[in-house]
Design a protein around this nucleic acid. Structure first.
Lengths: 206, 206
DNA sequence: AGAAAATCTTGACAGTTGTCCAAGATCCTC
DNA sequence: GAGGATCTTGGACAACTGTCAAGATTTTCT
């Protein structure tokens, strides 16, 4: 029922958006390998199947490209973490699965997490990223709070700390585990699991 | 009793080291303003009273300069935090003073802390910084553990978590507070204080 | 098929970067 | 104060950066 012009423009828009996603994927890969400071547009293009000039056809400038990347990264995050929140019937099972999920993504997506902490640091210097980074941070905080809330519910108790504090401590735990994991420590994942369960039972729900 | 040659060389060494410190100071200031990604040698030199060429007289290359900076930063850290650990007689007083100290440095040294988290992220990409950064991390962990140990001692109880976990959670708390403080939030310091006391009483010492 | 629109490549540009070096300035010792 | 060691300058260099535009190529529509 759409008019021809609509179909055309919609297909064009779709293709346009698809290519943006494609290029942002290459950018995300390059960023996660090299970090923000060492990633150039030519390097990104080399990780795609296009030449460097095309980036300015799909993105106004470098900032817009990276901002788009950050948004795309956020989508992945939410997707990834949503699998962790899970409808267990026992608080212990929830704690175990949550800890396992954290440890799994720590290892599997280590480079992406490394990039996240890099970009979050950059956002403290580069005004342009701040809003998007804060947005991701908030969605991560909500994700943690869903886990905590469900855990408290199953255990029949009330959380003893705020949402932001829960996120801050879990994030600290995860970041430290990432540092040690990337430094080659074998204990990082087990410590993260133990730490997460300890945190859940002792801090957020006393 | 030292021979003339010794006196000369020692004085030269001293002067040499003093200038290195001086240049590293300028570098540290520039880094804390612009962040690692945007700091160039010429920018550093402009923040000192020398020209850019002199940097390669005192440092082999940029990596050596920044590594030297990181070490100098560490010295400041230890100094700063040592004032916080304090010989209170009451656990509550210790918790209060510790929380106050954290909140104070959060505000006063916000730019230096921002730089620290930036450099720690960089160390995950740039192999050269990793050792020094890990060194600072360990000394911060020991600092936290001294506070926790003293608190437990005064309260007549035992810490319920490991040293690394205590550091991870406090660091997460602090980092989140820094993010919010730099974003202009007025609540950041108060939340940090409350969070630190809560952490001390509920987590590390149940 | 052929015109029109879109997509993509290539090369150039101006600016910045880390690095190095020759020459000058400054300091110290005799 | 001369002479030599030490320190500092400023410029040159090649490599790299983001950006842009003209032209080649492909796709789309009639």
């Amino acid at each position: 029922m759409t008019k021809p012009a609509d179909r055309i423009s919609r297909r064009q828009v779709d293709k346009f958006e698809e290519r943006r996603r494609q290029l942002a994927d290459a950018a995300l890969q390059t960023l996660s390998e090299l970090g923000y400071a060492r990633t150039s547009l030519r390097e990104i293009a080399q990780n795609s199947e296009f030449s460097h000039g095309v980036l300015h056809y799909y993105f106004r400038d470098k900032v817009e490209l990276i901002t788009y990347c950050v948004r795309q990264y956020k989508a992945r995050c939410v997707l990834r973490y949503d699998g962790i929140v899970h409808d267990a019937e026992e608080p212990d099972a929830l704690a175990r699965d949550f800890a396992e999920g954290l440890a799994a993504t720590l290892v599997e997506d280590a480079l992406l997490h490394r990039l996240w902490y890099d970009l979050r640091s950059q956002s403290l210097f580069e005004e342009s990223f701040r809003a998007d980074v804060a947005d991701i941070d908030e969605s991560l905080e909500r994700m943690i709070w869903r886990v905590v809330g469900r855990y408290a519910e199953l255990a029949g108790i009330e959380p003893t700390c705020s949402s932001s504090m829960a996120y801050a401590t879990f994030d600290g735990l995860f970041q430290q585990a990432l540092l040690r994991h990337l430094a080659g420590s074998e204990l990082a994942t087990d410590d993260l699991k133990a730490g997460a369960r300890h945190l859940l039972s002792h801090l957020v729900c006393a």
